[in-house]
């Protein structure tokens, strides 16, 4: 399984300039980008849509320079996260307008063995959720990442907590996953 399955050939065709390949890539990856951006509860629906659009415009413009077609999905999601964070920080006035999180350079992205580790990564996610103590954080993470239907905004509504609080919980949990995956990288899983 894995959503990147079959994307690689479309990435190559898009790099050759085929518009139909761009539309197929958009069709298949927009739901993921939209889901990622839906975790940033303080962004209103218009801002979410802007972030999604900006993500794809940036990614598609740079796509012909992408060194590893198989890295497309991870690269696209990195761009989406950067765009959403930049937007959020500007909204909170903690980032100046001209200041920008740099996107990963398409020329230097590393090779990622396609879907090879995804099953194990999903297991890491499930295990770390299971290990969370029962409570609001666990509920939030389950609603957003496992059930995967409600946006962070809707979860805030449902649980009766602030929008920023929901996003902070999601980010805190995500940083645990990131720590665990970084540890696995250091243990040489991609070498």
């Amino acid at each position: 399984m894995g959503s990147s399955e079959g994307l690689t050939e479309w990435v190559r065709r898009a790099a050759r300039g085929e518009t139909s390949a761009y539309s197929e890539l958009y069709r298949r990856t927009r739901p993921m980008v939209a889901r990622l951006v839906a975790g940033f509860a303080p962004l209103d629906p218009d801002e979410v849509e802007d972030v999604i659009q900006e993500t794809f415009v940036r990614a598609f413009k740079a796509l012909p320079r992408l060194k590893e077609a198989g890295a497309f999905e991870a690269w696209l999601l990195s761009i989406a996260r950067n765009r959403a964070r930049t937007r959020l920080e500007r909204k909170a006035s903690t980032r100046r307008l001209e200041d920008d999180v740099a996107d990963p350079e398409p020329e230097t992205v590393p090779h990622i063995p396609e879907a090879l580790q995804l099953e194990r990564d999903i297991e890491v996610v499930r295990r770390l959720i299971a290990e969370l103590p029962e409570g609001e954080e666990k509920r939030t993470v389950q609603l957003f990442y496992i059930e995967g239907e409600l946006s962070a905004r809707e979860i805030a509504e449902k649980l009766g907590v602030g929008k920023s609080a929901v996003t902070m919980r999601l980010e805190r949990f995500r940083s645990r996953i990131k720590r665990e995956l970084l540890r696995r990288v250091l243990a040489g899983r991609w070498e």
Partner: peptide
């Protein structure tokens, strides 16, 4: 590198959106 994208890919794959 692309660790952030890989983390998000794993998180999204744990839910129904990727399918």
């Amino acid at each position: 590198n692309l660790l952030d994208g890989q983390v998000d890919a794993a998180l999204l794959a744990a839910g129904p959106v990727a399918q």
